[in-house]
């Protein structure tokens, strides 16, 4: 085994057009995993800040509780806030919208499925059965990008409605840390959509096939799934747990 490996690597050191590598892996894949490791720290810092500042805001709106525009009253229900002396017109409802966010979470999860199918399409390009449109990479790349864009649409809707309810990035610590954290994630999704659209453009132009293109899509897929995984954590830690 070792013998063969050495012979292969050294017999023709001149003029070989593939570079020798220690592991036989792909440079760009190692780099992407390293980058993902770094991104883990980025999001850990953002999430820690959100959690550290949870419940420290001086004014509403609050993520899970009812509040009052004119005072610091907080309560579990609208009635509780009013009972504590808040005028009905000043009552602020909790801003987090679980039904809407559950939908966007589902969309992002499904986009990951579309992504693996796109990769499968590239890997099996030209094989029997993969020439049908619903098995090919173009369809699934487009679906992934579309679902990513839909997620961004949900986020835009969410952000606008928060602003209408009086929560901006400047309102309180919750607003600052919430918009920054989810905004960072949204930016990652946007970069991912741009990336997927670029891949789709290449696919339309010349077709994605062969080992090099598999790698190209594989790396984008790693990035995309990572963005998905981060959202899994955010959804639980920020939206569901109070």
């Amino acid at each position: 085994m070792a013998t063969a490996a050495i012979a292969e690597s050294s017999a023709a050191p001149h003029g070989e057009h593939t570079h020798y590598t220690t592991t036989g892996l792909e440079n760009r894949k190692i780099a992407m995993w390293t980058l993902i490791g770094s991104e883990c720290m980025i999001f850990a810092s953002l999430i820690s800040t959100y959690l550290v500042y949870k419940g420290r805001s001086k004014v509403g709106p609050w993520p899970h509780d009812w509040g009052c525009k004119t005072s610091a009253i907080v309560g579990k229900t609208a009635a509780a806030v009013q009972a504590a002396g808040c005028a009905a017109a000043d009552v602020m409802k909790p801003v987090l919208d679980i039904p809407i966010t559950s939908q966007s979470t589902f969309v992002l999860l499904m986009s990951s499925l579309a992504m693996v199918l796109a990769l499968e399409g590239v890997e099996n390009h030209g094989k029997p059965g993969y020439d049908r449109w619903y098995k090919g990479s173009r369809f699934w790349l487009a679906m992934t990008a579309l679902m990513g864009a839909a997620f961004l649409g949900y986020q835009a809707y969410e952000f606008t409605s928060f602003v209408h309810e009086g929560l901006t990035i400047r309102t309180n610590l919750f607003g600052s840390s919430f918009f920054t954290l989810t905004g960072f994630h949204g930016t990652h999704v946007a970069v991912g959509v741009l990336w997927l659209v670029s891949l789709l453009a290449i696919d339309m132009k010349r077709g994605l096939k062969g080992a090099t293109d598999v790698l190209l899509v594989d790396i984008a897929a790693l990035y995309w799934h990572f963005v998905d995984v981060v959202w899994i954590a955010i959804f639980t830690l920020i939206y569901l747990i109070q």
Binding site: I36, G37, C40, M41
Partner: peptide, 16 residues
């Protein structure tokens, strides 16, 4: 290699 790169970073991030 990939497993180590990711799990190592993840453990560090969770620790922090």
């Amino acid at each position: 290699v990939f497993r180590r790169l990711f799990v190592g970073s993840l453990v560090a991030a969770m620790g922090i």
